[in-house]
Nucleic acid binder design. Structure first.
Lengths: 196, 196
DNA sequence: CCTACCGATCGGTAGG
DNA sequence: CCTACCGATCGGTAGG
């Protein structure tokens, strides 16, 4: 972090849009600068490297998901895995729809980070996914969810949720709230005991 | 198509792996050539442009999905939307696990195609997604699926399926068949009428 | 399929 | 935040 001011946040915002639309590798430093009406080289008065911009976006997105899951877990009934999973799904959808560009960069572009940073994000993603996996396993254990593979089910649900980041439009047919409601329902039903 | 021989297929195969691992924009023509033990410029004896390689991969993947869905629909009970959706899901998973690299390039890299080709793929994707959407709508109409938004449910299921391309490993914990079975089950349950 | 080469663009630095 | 500039690499061509 070279400069914590408004300009630095504008860089992340503009870069999120460009990385989301065209991908990190296909976005040049000059593309970002042009969107801010400054010269390409001037961007380096604010950031040390192009990868630092990606890191800032990915790190903040990861933190947003983590904090939302913390809050969801705190508010949910700790004794009810169904309520717990519903809260995690709802929180995840809300983070995505609140900032789909940043979220989609987090989901799709983290492979372009340096090995160290990529490994750090991989660990945080694993820990985050474990919350879903363990909540599902708890639900299976108490008979609230049918017997299934918790890891695979967690992956099924999380990839469906992350897909929202690629297609969501704030002015689309469905509001963020309605998407969240539908996705909570689809996710819970996919794990429900009685099938047809 | 400049040359339809074995070398041309090797290029697609090697390029699929590289585009899958690093993305289209971050893969250079010389990266592809190096993997084939030839000079960068020599690649142009086989292809007219880097984008033509991407197009070949994406076009073949789209065709594979379309043909698999055709066969699935032919084999399924036309009067039973549940059987129809199960067949579509199973076929989709099988195409992905048969060639995860090509499938993931199809799912994630098509935005790097020229506007004309991108539009053509968008149309084919829409038509493909419509099969899922209409099968779900049929199931809702006959009471086999609960009343839901067919378009959103189709997106939920398809994004979960496409996620397989990003994490599947042939030597992983679960075989392709078991993944297909589980995903058919998860997808059907997500649309089931009776919830808990 | 090779060597030799092209103009354009890349991320980034120096010095103000 | 600017001008001027750097070496490296990009996709692609010419001519064999």
């Amino acid at each position: 972090m070279i400069e914590p001011g408004t300009r630095r946040r504008e860089i992340d915002e503009v870069a999120s849009e460009l990385f989301h639309a065209n991908g990190y590798a296909a976005t040049s430093v000059r593309d970002i600068a042009r969107a801010l009406d400054i010269q390409g080289a001037s961007l380096y008065a604010h950031v040390a490297s192009k990868e630092d911009v990606l890191w800032s976006i990915v790190d903040h997105a990861a933190t947003a998901f983590e904090h939302a899951a913390d809050a969801a877990t705190t508010e949910a009934d700790a004794a009810d895995p169904v309520d717990g999973l519903a809260a995690l799904v709802e929180a995840h959808v809300e983070v995505i729809t609140a900032d789909p560009e940043r979220s989609s960069v987090f989901v799709t572009e983290w492979r372009h980070l340096s090995p160290d940073r990529r490994a750090a994000i991989a660990r945080r993603r694993d820990a985050y996914e474990a919350r879903f996996r363990e909540t599902i396993a708890d639900g299976v254990a108490v008979g609230a969810f049918r017997a299934t593979d918790p890891a695979l089910a967690a992956t099924f649900v999380l990839t469906a949720l992350n897909g929202i980041a690629t297609w969501y439009r704030p002015d689309g047919r469905l509001s963020a709230d309605r998407i969240a409601d539908h996705y909570v329902d689809l996710a819970l039903r996919s794990l429900s005991e009685d099938h047809r």
